[in-house]
């Protein structure tokens, strides 16, 4: 089984639009949307949810106000600025509250509360789904607003996608990855067979590409690079491909700037499904080149 991951470094470069087209071109893939913080692939692929599970990760501290003596030890010990006095009660004692969004789930307040007034329940951080789409099974997820994007949900979506591929006898998992270089991206690329970085010919794209290629090198994953909207700044497109080569990555093609991407999105179609266009042709070439470039790593069993 082969697991191919599309990432971008900088957000908004067209990663998901390309992934949707790749899903249509791949035909027999299992799709995984690992951009769990801002998942958009489902807007194109319109999945029918077949299985829905909640995602529980870590814990969060909650003060039982009735038992709280207002001593403030929790607020003094919390290193995440999550606890503050919000009011005084009728006896004049301070009332403390924990900001759930800031709580790191470390338990320091819970273990050290003299009145044992702080509960520490498990935290539901989102949901994940296994669905059917017109281009094959899809595993996707939704992170609860403000939840910690720990990478664990990303790892879980990938694992479920591989499991789905094994069960449905499909030998390709296509992953729409998250932007950035932090924890969710690391979770999306570790042990993958190959990654494709979708970038754009801008100073930001150039800057972020170098960080994301360092990451690929760090985890020893073969990387390919696609310059989207290349004609906005052709010189920069050249520079980006040079940079890619010197970082050991393979340029696999360019996609032009055009309204077709957003138009297709509005019709809930991948660009390659929305009729013939030069943009669609560009995408077909990129997909074929990327597949060819990963042919050698294909025999390595994805873990």
């Amino acid at each position: 089984m082969k697991e191919l991951v599309v990432i971008s470094g900088k957000g908004g470069t067209g990663k998901t639009s390309l992934t949707a087209s790749f899903a249509a071109l791949a035909r027999k893939a299992v799709l995984a949307d690992c951009d769990v913080d801002a998942a958009d692939l489902h807007l194109i692929l319109q999945p029918e949810v077949r299985r829905r599970e909640s995602f529980v990760s870590g814990r969060e501290a909650v003060i039982r106000e009735a038992d709280c003596a207002g001593c403030g030890r929790c607020a003094a010990l919390c290193r995440f600025e999550a606890i503050s006095a919000v009011a005084r009660d009728s006896d004049g004692a301070r009332v403390f509250r924990i900001d759930s969004a800031a709580c790191e789930g470390c338990g320091v307040c819970t273990w050290n509360c003299p009145a044992k007034a702080i509960d520490f329940p498990e935290r539901t951080c989102g949901e994940w789904f296994v669905s059917a789409t017109r281009h094959g099974p899809m595993v996707h997820a939704r992170l609860a607003p403000g939840a910690e994007n720990s990478g664990k949900l990303v790892a879980l979506v990938r694992e479920q996608a591989r499991e789905t591929a094994r069960q449905s006898k499909r030998d390709l998992v296509l992953v729409d990855g998250p932007p950035g270089t932090g924890c969710p991206v690391i979770a999306a690329v570790t042990n993958a067979n190959a990654i494709l970085v979708v970038t754009e010919p801008t100073v930001s794209g150039f800057h972020d590409l170098s960080r994301v290629l360092q990451l690929a090198a760090h985890f020893r994953i073969p990387a390919a690079v696609c310059v989207n909207k290349w004609d906005i700044h052709p010189d920069m497109a050249d520079r980006i491909e040079d940079q890619a080569r010197s970082a050991g990555a393979v340029p696999v093609g360019r996609v032009r700037y055009g309204p077709e991407a957003t138009d297709a999105q509005r019709r809930k179609l991948a660009v390659v499904e929305a009729g013939n266009s030069p943009l669609a042709d560009d995408i077909r070439v990129v997909w074929q080149n990327w597949l060819d470039s990963t042919a050698e790593s294909g025999e390595k069993e994805s873990r």
Binding site: L143, G146, P179
Partner: peptide, 8 residues
């Protein structure tokens, strides 16, 4: 970008 802990 996004809505997770770094944004918060």
């Amino acid at each position: 970008p996004g809505t997770s802990c770094p944004v918060i």
